[in-house]
């Protein structure tokens, strides 16, 4: 179980910012992902949390090989995915699939559900012989809790939750090992969100899938993840098991983030201390020197502006944190149910 399926090493993704129409001039770079390393083990769920602009969606695109990294590597079972071509690349595509955020825009409105879920088989014809495809599509529909008789319907005839199930069925069609979920439930209603989360858990147990689960909702991530990585402005600031991050966070940003999450229990409202962050997230085109969080951090010292804190296990802590002054602090009192 401890085999690494995906290893990400010092991944960097910069987007050039250009001026001019005919003669384009690069005036800077958006440092969307700037040196991120982690690994994904077989059968586990790695949650990636962070606020908008932290680079988590760019990370998903690079993991899916939709964009080439500026530097660093994404290794799938030891192979660098950005170097794969032809047949090897096609085999990789079968193993890593994507579930996207918006169920309203991620399905082609002019294709029937049968065509949508059958498309993976058409792109990878060696997976299922032509004659068996319809049965496979219906089996998939059944698996994700949709009526197999609905193959001739169009996406707009389904509700948001149902469409997300169609997206999941599509991702499952090729029996991948890894599914990258980019905010898969954040566009859904509360009662529907739970249905889709339970479905994802069920499928993981059934097929031994590994998930990279990208989300901004910390409660959802805690519920589904085995390990959690916290990102801020293109960097990973803290990574650890679910307990380590939620019960013993050491990075000030993680602590602030956790303290800001509203807990659905009014009796906690008075004895809750929200750590208030001031100001906005700086621009990823010119991030602050040293620690990127220092401009909003209450612990910031001179050293924070000069030295980039490494993501490493520090004294008095049991998991890696990228803060010079990492210190455990309980933010959300957790109880077992």
């Amino acid at each position: 179980m401890t085999e690494n399926i995906i290893e990400v090493r010092d991944l960097v993704k910069h987007y050039p910012v250009t001026r001019g129409v005919v003669f384009k001039k690069t005036v800077g770079h958006v440092k969307a992902v700037d040196g991120v390393s982690f690994e994904l083990k077989a059968g586990e769920t790695l949650g990636v949390v962070g606020e908008s602009g932290c680079g988590k969606s760019t990370l998903a695109r690079v993991l899916m090989n939709l964009e080439a990294p500026t530097a660093g590597q994404v290794l799938y079972k030891g192979q660098d995915i950005s170097k794969l071509r032809g047949g090897a690349l096609r085999r990789l595509r079968r193993q890593i699939q994507l579930v996207m955020q918006d169920p309203y825009t991620s399905l082609n409105p002019r294709m029937t559900v049968g065509d949508l879920i059958g498309e993976p088989f058409e792109i990878h014809p060696d997976v299922a012989p032509r004659g068996s495809r319809r049965a496979k599509v219906q089996e998939l529909l059944d698996l994700v809790g949709l009526n197999p008789e609905h193959i001739n319907r169009y996406p707009h005839q389904f509700s948001g939750g149902q469409r997300q199930r169609i997206g999941i069925a599509r991702a499952l069609a090729l029996r991948p090992e890894v599914i990258v979920c980019d905010e898969p439930v954040s566009a859904l209603d509360v009662s529907i969100q739970a249905q889709v989360m339970n479905l994802l858990e069920k499928l993981q147990a059934e097929f031994g899938l590994s998930y990279v689960f990208i989300a901004h909702d910390l409660s959802v991530v805690r519920h589904l993840s085995d390990r959690v990585a916290v990102m801020y402005l293109g960097k990973m600031v803290e990574i650890g098991t679910e307990d380590e991050i939620y019960e013993r966070p050491t990075h000030p940003y993680t602590q602030a983030l956790l303290s800001a999450v509203p807990v659905p229990d009014p009796t906690l409202r008075d004895n809750k201390a929200i750590i208030r962050l001031t100001g906005d997230v700086p621009s990823p085109i010119s991030p602050p020197s040293g620690c990127r969080f220092r401009t909003r951090c209450w612990k910031a010292q001179d050293v924070c502006a000069q030295e980039v804190p490494l993501l490493e296990i520090r004294r008095g802590s049991d998991h890696p944190s990228a803060c010079h002054f990492a210190e455990q602090r309980e933010i959300v009192p957790t109880h077992e149910v």
Partner: peptide, 11 residues
């Protein structure tokens, strides 16, 4: 049906 951050092992 809502996941809670302060509860562990919640179903």
């Amino acid at each position: 049906s809502i996941p809670r951050m302060d509860e562990k092992g919640q179903e």
